[in-house]
Design a binder for these strands. Structure first.
Lengths: 225, 225
DNA sequence: ACCGGGTTCCACCTTGAGGGGGAAGGGGGC
DNA sequence: GCCCCCTTCCCCCTCAAGGTGGAACCCGGT
């Protein structure tokens, strides 16, 4: 059914990431990267002139985000199918993108083999969802939560880069000493960062940090590290 | 994480089909077929005596069908996960099986490589759905339909009822004193229970309890209480 | 009657966690 | 240069947390 190669477009604001995907995909004879774009507007314009089968689309981008770009691309008949790529396993983005017409949803740390098969599935009209997201999807489906909910944004905005690193490790259940070892810091430094995390997020102790991390989607059950 | 092989049980009334699956799976060193059954009743009895990690379950079977067998198998704590296999892409069966506690749903014509990765995904706690079914699932979800939900929480191995109560509150970020107040207990009692929880689950502190609770699905993000 | 497990609570002890306060280097903005 | 913020690390202090051991009660099975 697939005699021709699948023509893929990469849409992501990070060039480095696009380069990585291009390298992975170019290793496969059945796939060819025929176009790239750094934001949603460029992506929508490109699919008008270049023949594309599948779009790999980042969610977070400047100018126009992936959800809106997906909606515009899918609004055109015979247009390419869109496969969403994100860094975090955020359900809100996933569902918004799927409602906008995306055919699937994958994490950026997807193994190359899975990426290829996902592209093939999408191209043949099927939908794919990252395993970890599928589980949540099924849970929502089976339990049928009130849903439709507009979940709150992950407000870790006030946190510095270092603090976010510490937060993630706290959320994995590590002690201050273990975190210090992992980040090659003194325990005192870790305690300083953690103290600021607690203050900024209005949390009391590390256990609440773990709760916050899961509830906000910063970490997700069974996500690769 | 997966040093041991994954122990699989095949449940299908057609011997020929079991033989086919057994051959495919035996080619993989990470998977071992340790049991087989020709109907739901036999399957339920077998999982009581044989250690099984993943059950490949047919839906249509004499005596007891796969949906009911799945429900019974999943009602036992620490029981194996169930992956549903069907010949036709019938949504009704898929959804019924998923509601009964199945971790996934595949067509019998699944490529061997996909079957193996599906078994591994299910074994590691993720859910898998055949691509074509995923698409229907998403379509249904996008419209969000109503459905009668029977959500049963996963039962913990070894933990007593009281310990599970304490565990849930710990997983919500409460301190020992707060838990004591909520359950109308002395703090000493809460500490006793928590101590046993830590010992039984091989955890170090309450932060790891929170991680465990989320990872095992005892508590889930966005759940109203 | 006896035993075992669950639940409740106590006292005692040790340590990691968290808060307060300070200090020093580096880098970006003005 | 100066200031601000991030990052790094220190000391001191307090207390919740976790570990150990013991005890009492109830209930169900032997």
């Amino acid at each position: 059914m697939d005699d021709r190669v699948i023509r893929v477009m990469l849409v992501d604001d990070q060039e480095l990431l696009r380069a990585g995907f291009r390298m992975v995909l170019s290793a496969h004879p059945g796939i060819e990267v025929v176009a790239e774009a750094g934001n949603g507007v460029a992506a929508v314009e490109t699919v008008r002139t270049v023949a594309v089968d599948v779009v790999l689309m980042d969610v977070r981008m400047p100018v126009m985000d992936g959800v809106e770009a997906t909606r515009l691309i899918r609004s055109v008949a015979g247009g390419p199918r869109v496969l969403i790529l994100t860094t975090f396993d955020l359900d809100e983005y996933a569902f918004a993108a799927l409602k906008a017409g995306a055919s699937g949803f994958l994490l950026k740390d997807v193994p190359p083999a899975d990426l290829v098969s996902a592209i093939q599935s999408v191209h043949s009209g099927d939908a794919v969802v990252a395993p970890s997201t599928t589980r949540r999807l099924l849970e929502r489906f089976a339990v049928h939560l009130p849903s439709a909910g507009t979940a709150e944004p992950p407000v870790l905005s006030g946190l510095t880069a270092r603090e976010r690193e510490v937060l993630v490790l706290v959320a994995r259940g590590l002690s201050n000493m273990e975190i210090a070892g992992r980040l090659e810091l003194a325990e005192a430094t870790v305690k300083t960062h953690l103290g600021r995390i607690l203050a900024k997020l209005s949390l009391r102790d590390r256990a609440q940090v773990v709760v916050y991390a899961y509830e906000s989607g910063i970490v997700t059950p069974h996500s690769a590290d």
